[in-house]
Design a binder for these strands. Structure first.
Lengths: 377, 377
DNA sequence: ATGAAAGCGCTAACAC
DNA sequence: GTGTTAGCGCTTTCAT
């Protein structure tokens, strides 16, 4: 026999003589399978079946159970279900808190300028997950501290995706021993993980080549990201390769490294302007946010884009289309990133022993006004 | 004594003599508190404490437990935790699958044009939730069917927000008896719910007044949404009120009702053009998507905006800024919607007996080119 | 087709 | 500070 929680009268053949079904309106505890079973005159197993495998229950019984459930306001507990069945029907996504602090404040009401990378990945994952009957649990890692949250998430999902540089490799190692984890848009980090990456190298090389071959630029500069950002590094290498191919000089290092925010872009312009030789003809940034910041600064200094200097970014954030001149960039297939993550996760869920898989997603150029392409727009 | 699952050797003073700690590398089952406790030589309660309330455990013990946990790859099970503690640390959000099917296909690579309403709400909720130590579970309701998912969500969160018209009132009634639910951007529907709405009426009235007073338009038409969309209705009523105030004619019904997609906007233009008197001077739509569709159609017919016809929307989606002419609209504070939802949810979690609360969020006009304001942009 | 019973992994008293 | 123990609400054999 099973006791009711919170000092409730015990059920069935216990001591205390209970006044029967008298108190139906009194919603005191949240109803459980037991309550429904009791009231419907069936066993808890049958109640469970009604939800998990309706066809295994006689239609009439099923209706009765469902009616009682509705009446009682019964909703199956996801936790209990998860515990008993060892699966939650939820996939997770961890992403860094990308917010450019400046955009945050500067934009004010203009919420919309700010939709970045992560939103698209979320969107892609949500839809793919839903198609397969999963929900999506999302959580940004507040940088520095509270890995608490991602730990919490790890316990609550059947598997999850991590945007690069969100979770420490060490933690990742622990989590990925317990459940499927897929790395998104970075290096795989841990061999056993599945992994989706984006053609950073190819994209940047192609873009650089465009500047050289189509626009005939020869004096270029590349503003990279932190050394520990593999995306930024791969982009730089693409730039490098294109330069070499074209017989142009290209150092072993980006001309400048920055943290990749808008403010960094502005600063970069300042620095570059005072170097011997001044500004280059083409200014390539490792991401769109920096490029946008740079354009702001350049324009405020009276520099004409693209006439005096061509500017390019990488990512394809919406903001890049809204600025004037519109920003030439390399568009990442962010939604597809999310979709691919779901597919990999499900495949691994279906077969834990598959060999780890690595998918590379292609990128495409968005040639717009800031390099001299596109119309006025 | 407690048996191990899956036919594992029993622990401790049981029959089978077990070969001690010999098999450490053999990760066969996912480790639990028991495994950690055993190996660290403490009780499961202590392991639990290390995670829930670290300070209640002696530093040395804590380190030992943590070390073992890391070694074993232990991650606390969210389900078990949720079941035992009756709370999950997760908040939920249900939203309709807003996708404009046309945008979907037409946009092709242009992922970004498509960031709509829901993304912003998600963003706002995610951040607010995270600040309070919660994660966010999201799930769009595939229209017609599979309320399965939202049922699943309901069982897995401590409370959730619902974007209007996503979940049937009937289901909502059941869920909201079990956990806190807040209605977003629609009517409250159920009295006991908390509720956040947006000043649809005020916004549309102000926008209409702008058209009349600033631009001097007198022949207006309003294209509304379905009758059962309270937002669309409130907007229409705001329009109506402004017309009356200005002494202009305004029917009891929108000049046209449509389902609010882009295609609907185009069709609306077709219909209106062939009405006696032809197109009005000002064409107001109940949302941005329709307005954008309408502009496309008008432009393709050689109609000049805003010279011949002024067009306005409602929502403030990013797309509205990208189209030419840029769309005059009423901007909803979508991020704040999400934040407010979290606040209400948490307040109710803290005190289930609070009186239900209803918050109205202000909107603001975005006066752009399609009404004759703003610059060329 | 339905019931009985044994856990799933953890938390929360309550002892010591 | 740490251990014991009784559930949390469900799924799942195994019988019937």
């Amino acid at each position: 026999m099973r006791l009711r929680r919170r000092g409730w009268p015990v059920r069935g053949d216990e001591a205390t003589p209970v006044p029967g079904e008298g108190q139906q309106e009194q919603q005191v505890t949240t109803p459980t399978v037991y309550d429904v079973a009791d009231r419907a005159g069936v066993s808890i197993a049958t109640v469970s079946r009604v939800y998990r495998n309706p066809d295994s229950v006689k239609a009439k019984t099923r209706e009765r159970v469902l009616a009682v459930a509705r009446e009682l306001g019964y909703v199956p507990s996801g936790s209990a279900r998860g515990l008993a069945s060892r699966s939650t029907g939820v996939l997770g996504l961890c992403f860094p808190d990308y917010t450019d602090p400046e955009t945050e404040t500067a934009a004010g009401d203009d919420d919309d300028a700010q939709v970045l990378y992560a939103d698209q990945v979320i969107r892609g994952m949500e839809r793919a997950a839903r198609r397969h009957g999963y929900a999506l649990l999302i959580s940004a890692s507040l940088q520095g501290g509270a890995e608490q949250l991602i730990g919490g998430m790890a316990g609550q999902v059947d598997g999850f995706a991590v945007l690069a540089r969100t979770v420490s490799t060490e933690d990742l190692d622990v989590y990925s021993r317990r459940l499927p984890v897929v790395m998104l848009a970075g290096p795989r980090e841990i061999d056993r993980l599945d992994h989706v990456e984006v053609a950073n190298f190819d994209g940047q090389r192609e873009l650089t080549r465009h500047l050289v071959e189509v626009h005939g630029l020869t004096r270029l500069a590349f503003v990279g990201g932190p050394e520990d950002s593999p995306d930024a590094e791969a982009r730089f290498q693409g730039y490098q390769a294109a330069c070499r191919d074209a017989g142009l000089p290209a150092g072993d290092e980006p001309d400048l490294r920055r943290a990749m925010t808008r403010a960094d872009g502005r600063e970069a312009v300042q620095q570059l302007a005072f170097r011997p030789g001044g500004l280059p003809q083409g200014l390539l940034f490792a991401n769109d946010q920096m490029a946008v910041g740079a354009m702001e600064e350049l324009i405020s200094r009276g520099v004409r884009i693209p006439t005096d200097v061509a500017v390019t970014g990488f990512d394809g954030i919406p903001l890049g289309r809204m600025v004037r001149p519109s920003l030439t960039t390399v568009r990442q297939p962010m939604r597809r990133l999310g979709e691919t993550a779901v597919e990999l996760l499900l495949r691994r869920l279906a077969d834990r022993d598959r060999a780890p898989e690595s998918v590379m997603l292609p990128v495409s150029l968005a040639l717009r006004a800031s390099c001299g392409c596109g119309d006025a727009e």
